[in-house]
Design a protein around this nucleic acid. Structure first.
Lengths: 211, 211, 211, 211
DNA sequence: TCATAAACGAGACGGTACGTCTCGTCTTGTG
DNA sequence: CACAAGACGAGACGTACCGTCTCGTTTATGA
């Protein structure tokens, strides 16, 4: 790993090339998707020799994984509305706004289908999702502090309940991500944590809630 | 569409070839995944000339889409336990048992990442998922007959609530599909339809729903 | 050979098809040349099923050879000017007028390069050239009757002397077929037969050469 | 044209490959002819990847044209016997000895039938024949120096008179290239230049023809 | 005129070659 | 002498053509 090119002379052109290549890769990934992405095109866009790319990244998969790590860093502000429900609602709205964009869908699809045979690639995938859902951890810990959630609440479960339907629609059914989805998912995530959502119309029929 | 080879003389060798090719494609898809699948290998496995494959399917993507449609037809028995909860639990167990298998994961991944530029391919994707979740419709309609669900209950929503977390784990987080997931998801799906799950002791407060 | 289709029922549609195919072949040969000629195109032009062509002619080469035989039959009138020189001059002018046309060049080229492995094809090639130069025999025999040539004069030699330079230019050097070529070649052919050409003024003036 | 592979790095392996491919092409052309020549076979014989061939030569036709240029370079010694007649006789004997060989006939046929749509191919054809008949120019200029020919004697005409009958026989009539052809053609070429051949028996014997 | 064998039409197939496009490695020549 | 640029090897892809096969239909021909 240490003998990888670029490690030993990380200054000047080397670093510049690395950035350019990763940026070019990310751009192509966003604009055209994994299939259309070609080392040759990346190299051309980065104004770098193909060889340079091959030298530094062992394969197209690795290059893309690396670029995705960068992409994951583009982070959205973690919402802090003062209540768990508000936070979750804001977070899911963010997520939906993002995954509705076709270029983001392309990226998600790339990540999802990235063959994780290689250890580095697997790590990159994990890192991507970790970064993607980092907000949930903060939100949950704040909710724990406020006493809204028990101390052993699992952020993974929260994000799962919250985001799973949205991703399911994007990746699988292709149904539209309407506003109702937000209500349903937030409610769901809260319920799953033993909390009654404020926006819980059907549940209104059960008298105990009204009191 | 009509001028595609095999449409006009669907008997004998033609039909046999078609089947062999699709079976070979499905096999390769299951055993090695989309990337490793090659027209040449399909043709060899189907004992057919490569040309024959190219003649009938305009591209690798179309071939795979077609094969996936066949795969989707391999259907699991639709559970009928007498109660909605039992049915959902059984269905989800089926789904999980399926998506836990690596070869099925490969297929799902293929479907998810299949570029849907082409209309036929898009249709194939839809058909795949439609077939995949056909059971939900039956379960829901039976539950409606039994009065467990209102007549306007949407099978899509049910399957979404039920299956989304499982798919999310498989496709995104990679977390294991443990038994707890089943409980959570079934309960969730029921709750979302306004029903109190039997395995829902702490939610004690709404007896009216049970009536 | 006897079992070739069309032998046993040579009337009506069969003959009509044969003609149409051969005509279509000849047309394509003239208009686009051997390389561009395709059984499919021939069949389409002849409004006949491809199978019909394959049934009757064992290969593209045979079909073309057959068509060329027909082409060779399109004969030019054999000149009869009353003198050998006049006849030769007229004949060569005919030949040149013909081989100057690009479509005829295409045909000649086809004949020249037709692989003569097969016996029938070889025979067709011979027949083509035989027909092409049939006029020479008549001209020579008339000249013999008139006493202009000895009885053992060889028509092949005459045509060789007469036409070789023209064909050489067409097939090899690509130089233009100007009027001077006619004078030279006719004179040459006559000289080769021991006859002084009328259009040979300077040669008459130099008796010293004979010494 | 400049971006053709091999232009910018013409040393080492590149040059070696180029040579090997051209040699293999020439060999195949000689041994089996144009029709039997396949890029795959050329590549195999040259121990080079097919891609390499396709990269450097835009098509089979171009490759063959290129190889033919090399073949044309294999030159025969230009005869220098001291007299024009001797030189011509020697040259024609060379030509005949060459064109009698089946493999040379194959090559000639290839050149003749090479579609000259493309400019480069046309140039290659011209160059081939130019090289093939380069000897004539030397022979003529020496004869001019010796005063045997007028200063404006045209080498093209000489070669035409000399070689046309031989090529005519090879390409068209298929008659054998006997010794008599040499006598006739040399005499012819000389006569055409106003020179009486030494071996000119008939002419001496028939004074009556002049009447 | 009518039965029957011959020829045909039409679709599909096997097989070979062509030429294109990638990916990732190897080699050359230049700064 | 390192490395950027170029060439290469390997192999998949998709196209075009040739010639074969099968099956069902039409049409000549001679009894």
């Amino acid at each position: 790993m240490t003998e990888k090119p670029g490690r030993q002379r990380p200054g000047g052109r080397t670093a510049r090339n690395r950035e350019n290549v990763l940026r070019a890769t990310a751009d192509l990934l966003l604009s055209e998707g994994y299939e259309q992405l070609t080392i040759a095109r990346v190299a051309a866009a980065a104004e770098v020799a193909e060889t340079t790319v091959y030298r530094r990244w062992p394969s197209k998969v690795h290059l893309v994984a690396d670029a995705l790590s960068e992409l994951a860093r583009d982070e959205n502000p973690i919402p802090d509305t003062g209540t768990l429900e508000g936070d979750l609602r804001a977070l899911l709205n963010q997520v939906i706004a993002l995954v509705e964009r076709p270029e983001i869908q392309r990226v998600i699809l790339t990540v999802v289908s990235l063959a994780a045979d290689d250890h580095e690639v697997a790590r990159a995938k994990d890192a991507f999702w970790e970064a993607r859902f980092a907000g949930a951890a903060d939100i949950v810990s704040r909710a724990v502090e406020r006493g809204e959630l028990p101390p052993d609440a699992d952020p993974h479960e929260v994000i799962e309940d919250l985001a799973a339907p949205a991703y399911f629609r994007v990746l699988v059914t292709g149904r539209p991500l309407d506003g109702r989805l937000v209500d349903r998912s937030v409610e769901l995530a809260l319920n799953r944590q033993g909390i009654r959502s404020a926006a819980d119309p059907e549940r209104r029929a059960s008298p105990s809630v009204d009191d």
